[in-house]
Every structure is written in C-alpha cells, then in structure tokens.
C-alpha cells in the first residue's frame, strides 16, 4: 500500500469517529468502563501474584532431627534428603541458633530461656525447600519416614487456604475481564456497523469502481483502533494516579511484614501497555467483526 493511501485511510477513519458522534461516545465509554475494571483487577492480580510468590518462597519443611542422632547420622540424613526428588535446598539450623532466634522472638520474656543454654532441649533442624511449593506436603511425608527424623512441620493449613484464596481472586478477575471485553467488543462492533450501514452505498460504489476489500476495510480498522485506544486513556490516567497515591499513603507496609505492595514502577508501565493493547485489540476485533459481513456484496 502506498503511503498516501494510508494517510487517506487514517483520515477516513478519523472522520467516521466524528460523524458517528454519540455512538462513538458510547463505544469509548464502554471501553473506558471495561478497562477501568480490567486495570483495577490487573493491579490487584499482580499484587496478589506477588504476594503468592513471596509466600511460596516461604513454604518450607522443618525437619526436627532426633536428639540421639550423632553428627554422622545427621550427615547421612542430609544426603538422604538431598537425594529425594523435588528438593530445592536444605539448610542446617543447629539447636543453639534455634534457641537464639526463639529468645529473640520473645523479646524480654525470652531471657528466661537463657538458662536453658547449657541444656538446650531443642532439636537440630534441617530447613528443606521444595522446588514446587505445591508439592511440599508430599516431600514432608517422605522425609518423616527417614531414620533419625523426630518430626516434620510445615504450615499446611494456612498455606493451602492462602493458595485457594489467591487462585480464586485470579479466576474471578479473569472471568470478569473476559466478560467485559466481550461487552465492549460488541458495542464497538455495533458502532462500526452503524458507520457501515450509513456508508453501504459508498462501499457498493467503491466495489463497483474496483476497490479491493482491503482498501475498503482499512478506514474501519483505523476507526476501531482509535475507539479502543481512546477508551484506554482515561482508565490509564485514573488508575495510575490512584495507585500512586495509594502506594504513597500506605508505603510498602501492609501490616503483614512478609507482604509488600509492588512499587508503582514498573507495574504501572506494564498496566499502561496492557490496557492499550487490550483496548486496541477489542477495538480492531469489534470493527473487523462487523466489516466482514458487509464486504460480501
């Protein structure tokens, strides 16, 4: 295609937007509302994912070693755990260190336990991490049967619930996003259908004088693209502004020290890119849907 033809198509597409007035407004509004919700969910999902990932990294099996185990026994146990499939890392925490962190975590009251220093009742511990956090339970069950293992511990219940919750948020968000995308798509398809009906005669004449389908389709492609991209602007501005001020007032703190919010950069850039892409996709798809039917003249 020659560049002057492209210029013509873009001009025509832009003219269509203005000619369709209220329908253009309605379509852009639909895209705006859709992308507002999509964007909000995107931010939520990205944070939930971030949360889930940091949790998953925390999922570990604490293997309490039998008190009667000698150092050799411990080494043997270490290599046995190491040979289990799916083990990512093993860290040895001697009982003295365990006591230190216990005392530290209890603050002033912890000083009482200083007296236990000589007769430390705690076990030496292996902290084992699974390659796949979801397989933590299987791993724990295998380890518990090994010799010189006293008990194993892992935060089963809490983590399972959390995983279920994050999955739920992700799925609901996705379903909502898809539903809204289709709504916006149909609205855009309708707007463009109006353009086409208004220009049916023009299309017929274009075909009579030998215009290819591609030539006829281009202005509508541009119109759809513009509808989608224009609809993305307001959500991007609102969401970027809101997230920044939310982040500014909350800081990274959530009240839970193991969970932080994502910093505005780069997730706002990612969101902007995604919203523009979704807007453009929905717009173009919507317009192509309605053009296809009408080109079979």
């Amino acid at each position: 295609m020659k560049s002057r033809t492209l210029v013509r198509h873009v001009k025509e597409g832009g003219k269509n937007l203005i000619r369709n007035g209220w329908m253009t407004f309605a379509s852009i509004s639909a895209v705006t509302v859709m992308l507002l919700v999509v964007g909000a969910f995107l931010l939520l999902i990205m944070n939930v994912n971030h949360f889930a990932t940091s949790l998953e990294e925390d999922v570990e099996v604490r293997v309490f070693i039998d008190l009667i185990a000698t150092e050799e026994n411990q080494d043997e146990l270490y290599s046995q755990i190491e040979s289990i499939e799916g083990v990512d890392s093993i860290q040895f925490v001697p009982k003295d260190e365990g006591l230190d962190s216990l005392i530290a975590s209890l603050g002033e009251q912890g000083d009482i336990f200083e007296t236990l220093r000589d007769e430390n009742p705690l076990n030496d511990v292996f902290v084992v991490q699974a390659e796949n956090p979801a397989e933590t339970e299987i791993l724990a069950n295998e380890i518990v049967d090994l010799p010189y293992v006293d008990t194993v511990e892992y935060g089963r219940d809490i983590f399972e619930q959390l995983f279920a919750a994050t999955d739920f948020v992700r799925n609901v968000g996705l379903a909502l996003i898809l539903g809204l995308m289709f709504t916006a798509m149909f609205l855009i398809a309708n707007t463009i259908k109006l353009t086409i009906i208004a220009r049916k005669r023009e299309i017929q004449i274009m075909k009579l004088v030998g215009a290819t389908n591609g030539f006829i389709r281009w202005p509508f492609f541009v119109e759809g693209l513009l509808l989608g991209v224009l609809g993305a602007i307001i959500p991007i501005v609102i969401l970027s502004y809101s997230y920044r001020s939310f982040y500014g007032s909350m800081g990274e703190q959530t009240g839970l020290d193991f969970f932080t919010f994502l910093t505005p950069n780069p997730i706002l850039m990612q969101m902007t890119g995604l919203l523009l892409a979704i807007g453009a996709f929905v717009g173009v798809w919507g317009s192509m849907m309605s053009v296809r039917k009408f080109l079979k003249i």
């Binding site: 020659k2 002057r4 033809t5 013509r8 004449i205 274009m206 004088v209 030998g210």
Partner: peptide, 8 residues
C-alpha cells in the same frame, strides 16, 4: 477522482 483513488 474517487474511482482513481481506489486504484491508488
């Protein structure tokens, strides 16, 4: 002119 624009 339209008929000629169409054929670029």
């Amino acid at each position: 002119a339209f008929a000629m624009e169409v054929i670029e």
